[in-house]
């Protein structure tokens, strides 16, 4: 069996506003659009991945928050409706997706053998978190690829960004190893925004773009710095600066997804492609792609 591989890693933010603005048939609310810069960014990402052959999407989302280790969905068919508890006016999404339980279990087992606290989620009533749904929909609206859904272990809350990163670096290595051994071609998604300070009021309609901007200059500077580091392939520096970034930009990378994906890709020094940047209710969001498939064998 050929070795499995990561065809690409994506930073794919999940504010439900993006799905809301797209008006897909699965989502109940109807919009006039909005956040076009980001949605066109996703369009460019989809275009870039159009001819890329892969078997499965592996995604880590900060909106499945677990405090007792890292969890993996272990139910093959997930069919239900997801209502965002924070923006229920924007996101009430009927989903029907398939989980690659075999690969999920393989990553789980590998991480466990490395001493991590992990658990399979086998309750058929479980609802898939909206972060996973939004990012997957924006990256692959056809919903024709099975998914591995990984929870966000909130070790940051218990310890520190440093400890969170230790764990996510290990989870990344375990993910890469399990993928390699699976023989599958995988698309990895880190589902998160960058700076993450929200406005606490909403415009009417929510898609009124005249009111959309970053919450503060400091947040903008941090977002640009992180994007530039990704564009230059300075993954290690991103990891090094993560504690300051999380603290000062209240960054959603605190959920561990970005550290995990960088680790799974081997902390790459290859540059990432910026497909788009924009703010959503004040938070900073970048759509990035690391085209691992083009890097060749080391």
């Amino acid at each position: 069996m050929a070795k499995g591989s990561i065809v690409a890693g994506c930073l794919a933010p999940h504010p439900p506003h993006l799905v809301y603005a797209e008006n897909p048939e699965q989502n109940e609310p109807v919009s006039e659009g909005g956040w076009e810069q980001l949605r066109w960014g996703y369009e460019r990402l989809r275009e870039s991945l159009k001819d890329v052959d892969y078997d499965v999407i592996v995604i880590l989302s900060p909106h499945w928050q677990t405090y007792i280790g890292t969890h993996f969905i272990g139910v093959e068919k997930c069919v239900s409706k997801s209502v965002d508890p924070v923006f229920p006016n924007l996101f009430r999404f009927n989903y029907d997706l398939t989980i690659d339980v075999e690969l999920a279990k393989a990553i789980h087992d590998q991480a466990k053998s490395e001493g991590m606290s992990v658990k399979m989620m086998e309750n058929p009533d479980f609802r898939v978190d909206y972060g996973t749904l939004v990012s997957c929909h924006m990256v692959r609206p056809e919903w024709d690829k099975p998914i591995v859904s990984i929870s966000s272990n909130r070790s940051l809350s218990y310890y520190s960004v440093e400890v969170m990163q230790e764990m996510m670096l290990e989870l990344g290595r375990s993910t890469a190893k399990a993928i390699e051994e699976s023989g599958k071609k995988c698309l990895l998604i880190a589902s998160n925004s960058l700076s993450h300070r929200h406005f606490v009021t909403e415009t009417n309609p929510p898609e009124d773009m005249s009111k959309e901007h970053i919450t503060s200059h400091a947040m903008h500077l941090w977002d640009m710095r992180m994007i530039e580091l990704m564009r230059q392939g300075k993954s290690q520096q991103i990891i090094d600066e993560m504690p300051e970034f999380c603290e000062q930009a209240i960054a959603e990378t605190d959920g561990g997804a970005l550290t995990w994906i960088l680790s799974a890709m081997g902390v790459p020094s290859e540059p990432a492609i910026l497909h788009g940047y924009g703010t959503i209710i004040g938070t900073g969001n970048a759509i990035m792609e690391w085209p691992c498939r083009t890097w060749g064998d080391e």
Binding site: Q65, T66, I68, H71, M121, E122, N123, R127
Partner: peptide, 9 residues
């Protein structure tokens, strides 16, 4: 139907 994020089992 409510399922806890941690205690789903």
């Amino acid at each position: 139907v409510m399922v806890d994020a941690d205690f789903h089992d």
